[in-house]
């Protein structure tokens, strides 16, 4: 009995602090956000919470009639659909190159490609803002060598989002590359040896050994990349402020503006839950698609 009491005491001592912190500063906020999303919590409720009233689903119905929300939704999907696969492809490609047997100095190359990952997003977004400068920017200078006329990347409604995509791929590909390298190293080398003996080409080996063996890694990478990209915020905040013509306004940026600029917290909480729902749905769909592919 005594030892049982001691066990409970030890459990409370070791698990208690973290669980309490997670409960109070994570679980309660999630539930409160859900409740707030059904109220008209606004700047008047900020001073006195009792000013907020329940309005049922009105925030959600209003959201679906809000043209700016649809623009933010479309922009974010455009970003995820363009940057997600591109990031994964560049990561896989660089991992394959670095894993090639001929390459020496792997460590140096790996470190170089990884550098953008650790650096502060805000700082590099500022750097890229000047790289995209229409007159003095590095990108237009490089493109002048292949006779492409200067483009106002961030000021042009068509190019602003692709410019943010390019910067994001540059910033993130090193991260997934490292996971891919680990995945490639886990593939037993005798598979390749057997295939080589049977005369399979590099492409055949890639399609019938590398890709299927990497499937779990690819699913994991696709998921974390997608979840991260749906939360796009800092890049447009620094580089375009959502412009030009709202072409780079993202969901999180809209949520931030509604919640913390105009203090429409009920409305903002509804946006947060729509975002959560989209991410959840996206994860389920990707996992199902991957399973289907595996059995096909």
């Amino acid at each position: 009995m005594n030892s049982r009491n001691n066990n409970v005491k030890a459990l409370v001592f070791f698990l208690g602090p973290a669980m309490l912190a997670i409960f109070v500063f994570f679980c309660i906020p999630v539930l409160s956000a859900f409740v707030i999303s059904f109220t008209d919590f606004d700047i008047y409720s900020l001073g006195n919470f009792s000013n907020a009233r329940f309005i049922g689903l009105r925030n959600y119905t209003q959201l679906f009639e809000d043209p700016l929300f649809w623009i933010a939704l479309r922009n974010t999907f455009f970003f995820v659909i363009l940057a997600g696969p591109l990031s994964v492809a560049v990561s896989l490609f660089s991992a394959l190159l670095l894993n090639a047997k001929l390459v020496k100095f792997k460590g140096i190359f790996r470190l170089t490609y990884f550098m953008p990952v650790v650096t502060t997003l805000i700082a590099v977004a500022i750097v890229w803002r000047f790289i995209y400068h229409p007159r003095f920017g590095l990108l237009n200078y490089l493109l002048s060598f292949i006779h492409i006329n200067p483009v106002d990347w961030l000021g042009n409604p068509f190019w602003a989002m692709p410019a943010i995509v390019l910067m994001s791929v540059w910033k993130n590909f090193g991260y997934n590359m490292i996971i891919f390298i680990a995945g490639l190293n886990n593939i037993p080398s005798d598979l390749y040896e057997a295939a080589t003996i049977e005369g399979a080409s590099w492409w055949q080996q890639f399609r019938s050994i590398t890709l299927p063996m990497l499937a779990p890694t690819t699913l994991f990478i696709s998921l974390i990349t997608m979840i991260g990209y749906f939360q796009l915020f800092a890049e447009p905040y620094i580089m375009t402020q959502g412009g030009p013509l709202n072409k780079t306004l993202s969901i999180v940026q809209y949520l931030y503006q509604e919640g913390f600029r105009w203090w429409n917290m009920g409305y903002s909480a509804a946006i947060a839950f729509v975002l959560f729902f989209i991410i959840f749905l996206g994860s389920v769909i990707q996992t199902l698609v991957q399973k289907k592919l595996k059995h096909a």
Binding site: F25, F26, C27, I28, P29, V30, S32, A33, I36, L46, F49, I227, F230, Q231, V252, L255, G259, F260, M265, S268, A269, A272, F273, L275, F276, I279, F280, S283
Partner: peptide
């Protein structure tokens, strides 16, 4: 619960 994006907790956490 790790799938819940941080943006969901931001508003109530700010109020707290």
């Amino acid at each position: 619960s790790m799938i819940i994006p941080a943006q969901v907790t931001m508003l109530p956490l700010f109020l707290m």
